[in-house]
Nucleic acid binder design. Structure first.
Lengths: 300, 300
DNA sequence: CCATATACCTGACCTTAGTCAGGTATATGC
DNA sequence: GCATATACCTGACTAAGGTCAGGTATATGG
């Protein structure tokens, strides 16, 4: 741990996040309790389902209900059944009344004004620099906010990742990608104890994935490592690979291997960088040009 | 107002300040109420006077007393008379007990760990970039956190600024600076209605100043514009000049003038940039080589 | 159709944060 | 030495944030 870097981050946390965060809250609140203001904001002009609000704001179900009743009492919000056709009759949905819309617009305006207080004292050149630096901080902090956790391959978020993976290889392989020509991977093989599917999420949105199959009497096999464009270049691929290797190692496997297409050059570079070495083909995957193996240290 | 820049700042506020700020609080709190944890932190290994804590944390006097009693009750802090020799007998000072010291060290360690969570997933190169971007954001946000307000020239913070100003010109003038050779400025001339002294503060620390004398039957005269190294290059000098000009204009003066030394090149560049034009000498200031004047629009 | 799960709700309750009106002891200007 | 200000304190009070144990209505798997 580099003490100087840590000190710099701490200074930033103190002066920027604490101070700006507190001011932002004040602007947002406008005399109203902050929790109410935030909720009003999250409901937004388009309305939102109660469950979604609960998840986004991380509130207790009872607490959220009470907040909604208060906003209803103030004539800012109406809560009614979510009117999806044939939808779940228990689900309810909150929408802004006309007064609520006006209030939301006011909040939006004040948020703009608050942001402007940072830009206003600067000249055009420094404004650009500030915004660029903010974007850089934001992007690099994203790396620490990505959560990697096991997930059933049947989960809609997992499916979304695999579809994105397929779309990407279709775009990059020389002759597209036809799943029928490729060795199939069954869900069952990616569910413990046969293997695992890891999902990487950023604020609960899927941004990457990876899977490993624990073959009987053979090295474990890594499949479907994919990282969303939004978070590429932040070391997520490396982290996913590491977690998959550790998963296999912890369960007694001492080597992992994988196949890949020659067009995925950054992936190949990554494999080499983290210690994979090229081996003879161990399967007949139609789209593979390279096969790699890495021995993984015992998990004990 | 540039909508794109504003949107970028708002995104930053949302993802960085809100999220990181909230996490930082959690780390800090460790099960203890946040206000207590913050107070414990602010007391620090060296102890602190109660008044200083009140100012730094912005707490109500009664509330702070109660927090101190709680920490005392938990055996973390002792509060006793501030033992300055011949000091004010009303002033009291808080210090950490041994347990309190241990707790403080733990908070410090956790703060380090929290900062490390941002750095850890990045490689060395990106760590440097993150820290550099954070420093840039911090520096540019400072501009919006500087508060300019009138202040009696006898205020200790005003005196500190004027001393810093004198030190700086002593360093930069060709033959040093001897106040006895320079036209004196009396405090009375910088107190309304004769004139005003403006103090620029950042978190209540003085970081700049400027004064204007409202001469009878003559243009107003700007004196002692100084900006601390810590905030130089953020447009504070320009802001101070603008406020001084407005002060004079609002009171019926339609021109301001000032004298300056040839070595203060950035100041001279600033004067020209904001509309001052060079005039014949209007006084016999020993250290002046240039005299400037600007007409200021009526305040009505 | 029954058992169980889920989505949302209500009521009871608690802690934390913070304000305000005095109170006591010391300092300060005249 | 008196009036007034100041530094810190106590007690009474309030609002906000939040938890928890049920309750009701709808969904779901067998």
């Amino acid at each position: 741990m580099d003490a100087e870097l840590i000190a710099a981050v701490r200074r930033f946390n103190r002066t920027v996040t604490q101070r700006v965060g507190a001011l932002d809250d004040e602007y947002m609140a406008r005399g109203r309790p902050l929790a109410q203001a935030r909720l009003l904001w999250e409901i937004g002009p388009g309305g939102a389902e109660v469950a979604a609000l609960r998840a986004r704001l991380g509130l207790d179900s009872g607490y959220l209900s009470r907040l909604l009743r208060t906003l209803e009492g103030d004539g800012l919000v109406t809560v009614g059944p979510a009117d999806q056709i044939g939808g779940d009759g228990r689900v309810r949905s909150a929408a802004l009344t006309e007064t609520g819309q006006a209030e939301w617009t006011e909040l939006d305006k004040r948020s703009d004004e608050f942001a402007w207080t940072f830009l206003e004292p600067l000249n055009a050149h420094r404004r650009q620099r500030l915004v660029a630096a903010m974007a850089e901080v934001e992007r690099l902090l994203v790396a620490s906010m990505v959560v990697i956790a096991p997930c059933p391959p049947s989960d809609p978020r997992a499916r979304a990742c695999v579809r994105a993976y397929a779309r990407e290889v279709a775009r990059r392989f020389d002759a597209g990608f036809d799943p029928a020509l490729s060795n199939p991977v069954h869900d069952d093989a990616l569910v413990p104890p046969a293997g695992v599917f890891l999902l990487a999420t950023l604020n609960d949105e899927p941004v990457g994935c990876g899977a490993v199959k624990l073959h009987r009497d053979a090295p474990a096999e890594i499949k479907r490592v994919w990282v969303s464009d939004a978070v590429r270049g932040l070391g997520l691929g490396r982290r996913l690979l590491g977690e998959l290797e550790r998963y296999a190692a912890d369960r007694g496997w001492n080597a992992v291997r994988l196949d890949t297409n020659r067009n995925l050059t950054e992936a190949i570079a990554l494999y080499r960088a983290v210690g994979y070495r090229e081996i003879e083909p161990y399967n007949t995957e139609h789209y593979a040009h390279h096969w790699f193996e890495k021995s993984v240290p015992d998990g004990t």
